[in-house]
Write a protein that binds this DNA or RNA. Sequence first.
DNA 1: GTCGGACTTGAATGATCGCTCAAGTCCGCG
DNA 2: CGCGGACTTGAGCGATCATTCAAGTCCGAC
Lengths: 204, 204
Amino acid sequence: MAEPDTRTRILEAARRLFHEQGYGATGVATILREAGVHPGSLYHFFKSKEELLAALLEHYPALFAPIVAGPIEAATRDPVARVFALLAFYRKGLEESGCRLGCPIGNLALEVSDNHPEVRPLLERNFAMWSGTVSGWLASARLRPGTDLDRLARFVLAVMEGAVMQARGAGSLAPFDAAVAELRRHFDLLQGKAGAARARKRKR
Amino acid sequence: MAEPDTRTRILEAARRLFHEQGYGATGVATILREAGVHPGSLYHFFKSKEELLAALLEHYPALFAPIVAGPIEAATRDPVARVFALLAFYRKGLEESGCRLGCPIGNLALEVSDNHPEVRPLLERNFAMWSGTVSGWLASARLRPGTDLDRLARFVLAVMEGAVMQARGAGSLAPFDAAVAELRRHFDLLQGKAGAARARKRKR
DNA sequence: GTCGGACTTGAATGATCGCTCAAGTCCGCG
DNA sequence: CGCGGACTTGAGCGATCATTCAAGTCCGAC
């Protein structure tokens, strides 16, 4: 495994640190230390800390398909099951970090959108890609007539982000699981599985 | 209108600034300027910036009932309508600020929960109070049997926070409205209003 | 009247912030 | 070999960060 080049090491360190501590709370000095790089190098590739963030946000959508969506699509055929596999992915991230690490985009969205308006389009592109993927999955689901798939996908994203937020605040997975369980119910109803008891029993 | 006392002016300035710019991005110097106060005074009342935040988070639950929940309860009797009036309240905040100001707790939850674990219980208390209020409202709603009200309330909170987050990222109310519309559908289904078209027509 | 504690004043602290830049190394190309 | 551009080195910039503290004002209690 050859040492990755400088630019990559910087991006990787920044990605990890922004995810763990947030953008504002991460000093450039920390990124430099973690990447094993000197200030001049960083500012050779990125003309500011903010542009480093922008580069990261541009990079994210390219990672989502291979790392997150792909494995789920390979392992799961049923469209609705895919959605919940996606939520399980975020749950795993929460669990493994003691409810500290959430969605890398969502974290930044609230922190950064005000003070740095120029990254807003990048945030929206990430959200759009995420919900677009979910919407694409659901196209082949048998849902009640009149279901707006884009709307439903935005809804799933909202539930996920809100659930992650509560879990991090509480330091517990309970609120996350509660929100996901209720989302499951919504899908049950959309699929016409009215009797919750029966649907619950045959747990895939 | 007498000038409020120093401690109150500090809290008020901090509340506004933390809401507008976040905790980390707000310097103590800014708080001092906005409150018209000298450093010594602030540190007389609060032994650190972090304790100032804690005091704020302790104060919030006391504001929710009179300012948010109270007026809604007075204006609206129907439990489900109350929930959507609550969501409309946050929508108004987004609209009036050009999608910049979201939920004051949610903003802080993601930013602060990692680096300052001691405020986590306070965040959770705020979330619990919010969802507790919603849960209380829904107790008198006629929903499908087997509906878990606390779970449903956590779900509503997740949708709200996630919707606000997307709206701020996008700089548009569209994702917010989409998420809320889908939540409306969930409640329609929970209330047995299967025919979406009919339910949509008699718009309250 | 005077004493003491609550509160204010505001200069100053060291640390850390994001960032600059002149000098130097390295390597491919002529 | 020698030139030039890509990249690295690392000291150091001014600004801002949260915080401190000695001095001073104010006011109610005795």
